[in-house]
Design a protein around this nucleic acid. Structure first.
Length: 410
DNA sequence: GAAACGTGGGA
DNA sequence: TTCCCAAGTTT
């Protein structure tokens, strides 16, 4: 597709990054693909055909494993995703299995990956596609960008990545890797947030429409293995001779960053409430918002000047309508989320009265500590569970400890 | 358009 | 220790 003629340069938005490289596009494509042939990552499991080989140009691949992988890869590095993806594919082997799965199972497979809305939306999308395929008895998979982007949790970049990976279709992507590479190539003066459209045009212009699958993967591989965020390996880069940031002598300065906003800090009082049967009280968080759909030990934010024991008593009263005796501290867990830092001060509590009600959660449940593994918990709560098990083991009479635990300690 | 949304690894 | 950051999307 030819570029529209007579584009207007806007001084305020900086120069159009497309102009900077326009005449070098063919050479850039050639050098990138030549580099990728030798140094690219060619063994990514969802990018291989059933014979275990890299697909030929235009050879279609099963979209399901690619879809799952691409959603896991949102804001998450390949090395982190790999074990999760293998475990997922061993359990939810195809679209029908995912559509039929319970959300609890889906979240358990996602536990530890973060951004849990991704898992819920993947699940929703699977049910959507599955139902549609049953009704129309056809191929469930979207065939174009719009169709993929219509699925929950799939934006422009993920849709393009899936289409080019699965069908070798010419769809430009703009993930963190591509953005960093392109910002350096052009030494773009603005934070990517404010130059978003320009970088999309640049990605579109560069894309090799004869080999989109290879080109997109090459662009991401370059960003992930050579044009890295810190200390890029410019000596190994096929684009260094065309790179404006390299020429300027400080490639790591790009992409230009916005000033990070300091993350607020809060103290959370948490109650690990035990009843006379030795069961512990957990609740399922609301579907929307932070850690939506995951389970947790109940608690809430400490108010200014409030003793933590009072916080815990108050929160359990407000959110569960129960009365507890706050006993000794179990553990203190510090945890940084993407936009806030929390300190969980966790106390053991003795249940006194009140049938727990889910006033601020989806549901509440008394469970035996040994059964907590059946529930998806966020990372900070997983550390609370560890501390609880250590405590219960220490208190248990000899001979009644968990099987592997006493042996591991010895 | 800005802010919300997780986690673990590396410097 | 602390900070930065990663194959983005949604509201």
């Amino acid at each position: 597709m030819p570029l529209p003629p007579g584009r207007i340069r806007s001084p305020q938005s900086g120069s159009d990054p497309v102009d900077a490289i326009q005449d070098r596009v063919p050479a850039l494509r050639r050098s990138l693909l030549a580099w990728w042939q030798l140094h690219g990552r060619h063994a990514i499991p969802w990018k291989l055909n059933p014979a275990g080989s890299p697909p030929a140009e235009g050879e279609p691949l099963d979209p399901y494993p690619i879809w799952v992988a691409e959603v896991m890869l949102q804001q998450t590095q390949l090395a982190v995703v790999l074990p999760y993806w293998h475990r997922w594919m061993a359990t939810l082997t195809d679209l029908g299995a995912l559509a039929a799965a319970r959300e609890q199972e889906v979240l358990l497979l996602w536990q530890g990956l973060g951004y849990y809305a991704r898992a819920r939306r993947l699940h929703q999308g699977a049910r959507l596609l599955w139902d549609r395929a049953q009704a129309g008895e056809g191929n469930p998979w979207p065939g174009d960008l719009e169709g993929w982007q219509a699925l929950p949790g799939i934006g422009r970049s993920t849709a393009a990545s899936i289409l080019s990976s699965a069908y070798d279709r010419p769809a430009a992507l703009l993930d963190g890797n591509a953005l960093r590479v392109l910002a350096r190539l052009t030494a773009h003066p603005l934070p990517p947030r404010r130059a978003h459209a320009g970088f999309w045009r640049l990605s579109e212009s560069l894309l090799d429409r004869r080999r989109p699958r290879a080109f997109n993967q090459a662009l991401m591989d370059l960003g992930a293995t050579v044009c890295t965020p810190r200390s890029p390996a410019c000596g190994a880069c096929p684009w260094s001779r065309s790179c404006a940031a390299y020429a300027a002598g400080d490639p790591a300065r790009y992409p230009v960053k916005d000033q990070p906003r300091p993350a607020p800090f809060e103290v959370i009082g948490v109650g690990v409430v035990l009843n006379a049967s030795g069961q512990v009280l957990i609740d399922q968080r609301l579907q929307e918002g932070l850690l939506g759909g995951l389970w947790e030990f109940p608690g809430g934010k400490q108010e200014p000047g409030e003793p933590i024991e009072a916080t815990i008593r108050r929160e359990l009263q407000e959110e569960l309508a129960i009365e507890v005796e706050v006993e000794e501290e179990l553990v203190v867990v510090e945890h940084a989320y993407s936009h806030k830092r929390l300190r969980f001060v966790v106390h053991l509590c003795r249940w006194l009265s009140g049938d727990p009600r889910p006033l601020a959660s989806q549901q509440v449940r008394w469970v035996m500590p040994a059964d907590l593994d059946a529930y998806p918990f966020p990372a900070a709560n997983a550390r609370i569970i560890e501390a609880l098990r250590r405590r219960l083991d220490a208190d248990a009479p000899a001979g009644h400890r968990h099987p592997g635990e006493s042996r591991a300690a010895a």
